[in-house]
C-alpha cells in the first residue's frame, strides 16, 4: 500500500463535512426557537384568550355543537360520500369501458369537476338549478342538495381512485374468473371490485376527510337553524356573542374526527405495505 498517507480529497482549511452538517442543523434549531419566542412575545395573549377562549361561551355551545352541528356535518359528509362513491364507481367503469363515447364522457366529467372549486358547485346546485328548472325540487331538501353537491365533486376524484384500484388487480384474476364461467360483469362485481376496494381503502378514507371539511360549504346554500353544521353553527354563535370562541370549538370538533381518521389511514397504508411483502 503506497497511497495510505495521500488524502482522498485535498484537505481544505476550515470545517469537515460532519462539522458543517451539525452547524447547519444548529442554525435550523436556532431559527425555530427564535421564531417561537418572537411569536410568544409579540402576540397579545390576553386579547387572544379573551377572543378565542371564553370558557362560559364554549360551555354554552354544548350539547348543541355535538348533537346538532357535528351530527349534521357527519350526516352531510356521509351522504355526499355515498353519492360520490356510487357515481364515482359508474364513472370509473365508464372510463374503463370498451365503448368510446363512455370513456370520453367520463373523462370530460372528471376534468370538469376536478377543475372547479367545490364552492361553485354548491352555488350552482343552490341557485342555478332552482332557477333553471322552476318547480323541480331536489329530493331530501338541504340534505339532498348537499349530498348531490358534495357527491358531484367527490365522484370525480373517486372515479380516478377506483379506476386505478381496478387496474391494480392482477390480470390473472379476471382470467381465472372468466375461465370459471363468470360473465365480465359478474367477475367485476364478485372478484375484481372487492379486491380493488382493499387497495383503495386508504385513498378513499382520505377523500372522506376532504369531504368532511368541504361540508362547511353548506353555508352557501342557506340552511335553517336545524340544518346548521359545525362551521355555520360556530360562525352564527361567534357573531351573536361577538366572540370567536365558537370558531375555536368548531375547529376542535373537526379535528376530533379528522385526526383519528388520518391515523386510521396511516395504519391501513402500513398494513397494505406489509401485505405486499
Amino acid at each position: 500500500m503506497t497511497g495510505t498517507d495521500v488524502p482522498l480529497q485535498p484537505k481544505k482549511k476550515g470545517l469537515t463535512r460532519r462539522q458543517k452538517r451539525s452547524l447547519s442543523r444548529g442554525i435550523q434549531y436556532a431559527v425555530f426557537v427564535a421564531a417561537v419566542i418572537a411569536f410568544a412575545v409579540a402576540a397579545d395573549w390576553d386579547r387572544l384568550a379573551n377572543q378565542f377562549a371564553q370558557g362560559d361561551i364554549a360551555r354554552q355551545m354544548f350539547p348543541d355543537v355535538i348533537t346538532l352541528a357535528l351530527k349534521n356535518t357527519v350526516l352531510y359528509t356521509v351522504s355526499g360520500f355515498v353519492v360520490g362513491l356510487v357515481l364515482g364507481m359508474v364513472i370509473a367503469l365508464m372510463r374503463l369501458s370498451s365503448v368510446g363515447p363512455y370513456r370520453w364522457l367520463a373523462g370530460v366529467y372528471i376534468e370538469i369537476f376536478r377543475g372547479l372549486p367545490a364552492l361553485l358547485i354548491f352555488i350552482f346546485i343552490g341557485v342555478a338549478v332552482p332557477l333553471a328548472f322552476p318547480g323541480t325540487e331536489i329530493p331530501g331538501g338541504t340534505y339532498g342538495k348537499v349530498a348531490l353537491a358534495l357527491g358531484l365533486v367527490a365522484a370525480a376524484y373517486m372515479a380516478e381512485t377506483i379506476r386505478a384500484g381496478i387496474q391494480a388487480v392482477p390480470k390473472g384474476q379476471m382470467e381465472a374468473a372468466r375461465s370459471l364461467g363468470f360473465s365480465p360483469a359478474r367477475a367485476m362485481i364478485s372478484i375484481i371490485i372487492p379486491q380493488a376496494f382493499r387497495i383503495i381503502l386508504p385513498p378513499l378514507t382520505n377523500e372522506l376527510v376532504l369531504l368532511f371539511k368541504d361540508s362547511s360549504l353548506v353555508l352557501f346554500l342557506g340552511v335553517t337553524l336545524e340544518e346548521r353544521e359545525l362551521s355555520k353553527f360556530g360562525r352564527d354563535l361567534a357573531s351573536q356573542t361577538a366572540n370567536s370562541t365558537p370558531i375555536l370549538v368548531a375547529g376542535l370538533c373537526y379535528l376530533l374526527v379528522t385526526i383519528p381518521l388520518g391515523f386510521v389511514v396511516r395504519r391501513m397504508e402500513a398494513k397494505a405495505q406489509e401485505a405486499v411483502k
Binding site: 382470467e175 381465472a176 370459471l180 364461467g181 379486491q195
Partner: peptide, 27 residues
C-alpha cells in the same frame, strides 16, 4: 372447461373454501 394457471390465480380476498364455493354459487 377447467383451467389451471401457472400463477394459480386464486382469489386472495376469499378463503380456500370460498374460492371453491363462490364460482359454484354465482355461475
Amino acid at each position: 372447461i377447467g383451467m389451471v394457471f401457472q400463477q394459480f390465480n386464486l382469489f386472495p380476498h376469499l378463503t380456500v373454501t370460498e374460492n371453491l364455493t363462490l364460482p359454484q354459487r354465482r355461475v
